[in-house]
Write a protein that binds this DNA or RNA. Structure first.
Length: 536
RNA sequence: CGCGGCGUGGAGCAGCCCGGUCAGCUCGCCAGGCUCAUAACCUGGAGGUCGUUGGUUCAAAUCCAACCGCCGCAACCA
């Protein structure tokens, strides 16, 4: 239908045993920025998200609430999507692994791997607690002195039959792949880590079955067993685009351009996942991006804590969104927490960033421009039809300090573009603010249109026209990050290109204004409403 | 000796890969300016021997070594 380049990306899928918190949301945000940016760049984007439901924990949680697992999962899926919607996450599909279509496609995949000889029967041996009826890791065994942490009873050595995936068979190919494709695992440090793991420990075959569980997907060749939740979860990335029942769609999208995941599950995505795909005769994904974590700053203690229920520091996205806005939420995390590494949240810091950058810098610049035009020109700059933007007003040194770093919209555009593509979102945003917004305020200060208008209306018109161009550029560059606010800024004026058609490169475009530049924003008491009211 | 990351003015960070043009940015603080704007904006200032020690070099925040301190991960806790 189109020769647009395609772009397929996913986030990790989440366990629905509790509602999403700000850390969960961080990943979706980072992925969303990429999706929005790629759409602006003309890609045919398909963005997959979902929930990972076939785990015993989910079934247990449902039981404790007196619900059927399926009903529970469906309700949680609804709740998750409500949050994603509130955050303006622009995913195209949302997969629930408990749904029949996923299960069937999943079984087809497993069967294929089995047919190809990469699944074999063996036995798993480990430390078992008869009270919990489950195996405990060697770590637990070592740390608890051989006792079950829950039952305080001795763990017993036990072995039981199971099915293994022959992960070890892919060791050489995987190492070669990791080493030969620097882009495959990002950021770089994770890639080194992943190579290091294999070189140090090799790859052991993986038990991919669980015995005697009701909730889950049955192995097609041995219905006594269910499929280990990870093996099934990873498959959403392909079952969600038609693997197993819609070959054409699957071929259109696969291989994925990027999987966005948390740094804790990098091994699953860079060792097990490619091996699984190869075992089924498919290609590995092009890139796995391991983002950092968000921690919560405990402002009383001055410490930084991992988000956890036991510490009672869980913050849900809705707490922030309902108090402020989705864009305020997006801005904070994208600006303040470097996507490839870790970040922190605190309400104090939130208010600082919000006031300083969204209210004082971005919102206030819009206010001063619109007010000047409204007060002095009745909202229209007459005779500016045919004016073509030029960025000289920012790069000509209007103050002797300016010569060091000449701000330039085209240069900022390129910086923002490359930083966004490499998922360094916070750096991209900083560049946009420092590269355009800040010099624009200096420019206004230097030209003082509020004074100039008394002596030279023509010159004032040009100054305001220029300043508004900065807002246009900034709104375009910020579109992937704070879509609603960016749109509000852009549509406050009658710029020639419709918002929906704006490309990233248009930020630096030199397209003539066909009509007189005018304020098109809604006016309240003759003024444009503040975009980001300060937090008191 | 498990793996990885971090330590830069009061706070948060950038710079380090490719040594010199680097001590930079934001917030806060102090002084001044402006008054179009969301008590916003602009200018100037105080404040750091870039964790420690040693090495390489004409020259190190930047490279090398050792040490100290903080943090994360270690197969189902985003």
């Amino acid at each position: 239908m189109t020769d647009k380049p395609r772009w397929f990306q996913t986030t990790a899928i989440d366990y629905p045993n509790s509602r999403p918190h700000i850390g969960t949301a961080f990943e979706k945000l980072g992925a969303d920025v990429q999706a929005r940016y790629r759409r602006m760049e003309g890609y045919d984007v398909f963005f997959l998200m979902g929930n990972d439901e076939n785990t015993l924990k989910v079934a247990d949680r449902a039981k404790s609430l007196g619900q059927e697992p399926q009903a529970y999962c469906d309700d949680m899926a609804r709740q998750f999507q409500e949050v994603w919607k509130a955050l303006d996450i622009s995913h195209d599909t949302f997969i629930q692994t408990s749904h029949e279509r996923h299960k069937q496609c999943c079984r087809k995949f497993v069967q294929k791997v089995y047919d190809n000889g990469y699944i074999y029967k063996g036995s798993y041996e480990g430390w078992y607690c008869p009270g919990c009826e489950e195996f405990k890791s060697d770590k637990v065994h070592a740390e608890s002195g051989g006792l079950c942490p829950n039952h305080k009873r001795p763990l017993v050595r036990r072995s039981e039959p199971c099915w293994f995936f022959k992960l070890s068979a892919f060791k050489d190919r995987l190492l070669e792949h990791l080493k030969g494709n620097p882009e495959f695992v990002q950021p770089e440090s994770r890639r080194n880590e992943m190579i290091g793991f294999i070189e140090a420990e090799g790859l052991q075959d993986l038990n991919i079955s669980r015995h005697g569980e009701e909730w889950g997907i049955k192995l097609p060749f041995d219905p006594e067993f269910t499929i280990y939740v990870w093996f099934d979860a990873l498959l959403t990335y392909i079952t969600g685009i038609g693997y197993g029942d819609d070959e054409a769609t699957f071929r259109k999208h696969w291989p994925a351009d990027v999987h966005f995941i948390g740094k804790d599950i990098t091994r699953f995505h860079t060792h097990i996942w490619p091996a699984m795909l190869w075992a089924a005769g498919e290609e590995a994904p092009r890139k796995v991006f391991s983002h950092g974590f968000v921690y919560v700053k405990n402002e009383e203690a001055g410490t930084v804590e991992k988000i956890s229920k036991s510490l009672g520091n869980v913050i849900e996205p809705m707490e922030v969104i309902s108090k402020f806005s989705a864009d305020a939420f997006r801005y904070y995390f994208l600006r303040e927490c470097p996507f490839p590494s870790d970040g922190e949240f605190s309400w104090t810091r939130f208010a600082e960033v919000y006031n300083s950058e969204l209210a004082n810098s971005l919102g206030n610049t819009l206010s001063r421009c619109t007010t000047l035009i409204l007060k002095n020109f009745g909202g229209v700059l007459p005779g500016t039809n045919g004016y073509t933007p030029s960025w000289d007003y920012l790069s000509v040194p209007f103050d002797n300090k300016m010569s060091i770093v000449k701000p330039s919209v085209p240069r900022t555009l390129e910086a923002a573009r490359s930083l966004t593509e490499s998922c360094n979102y916070n750096q991209a945003i900083i560049n946009i603010l420092l590269g355009i917004l800040s010099p624009t305020n200096q420019y206004l200060e230097f030209k003082a249109p509020w004074k100039l208008v008394k002596t030279d209306k023509e010159a004032t018109k040009e100054v305001l026209f220029n300043a508004v161009q900065s807002l246009r550029a900034v709104s375009i560059l910020l579109k992937p990050f704070i879509p609603k606010s960016a749109e509000a800024i852009y549509t406050s004026f009658n710029f020639p290109t419709p918002w929906a058609e704006v490309k990233y490169a248009d930020a630096a475009e030199l397209k003539a204004q066909p009509d007189d530049l005018r304020i098109t924003a809604e006016l309240i008491d003759g003024k444009v409403k503040p975009l980001f009211p300060r937090i008191g």
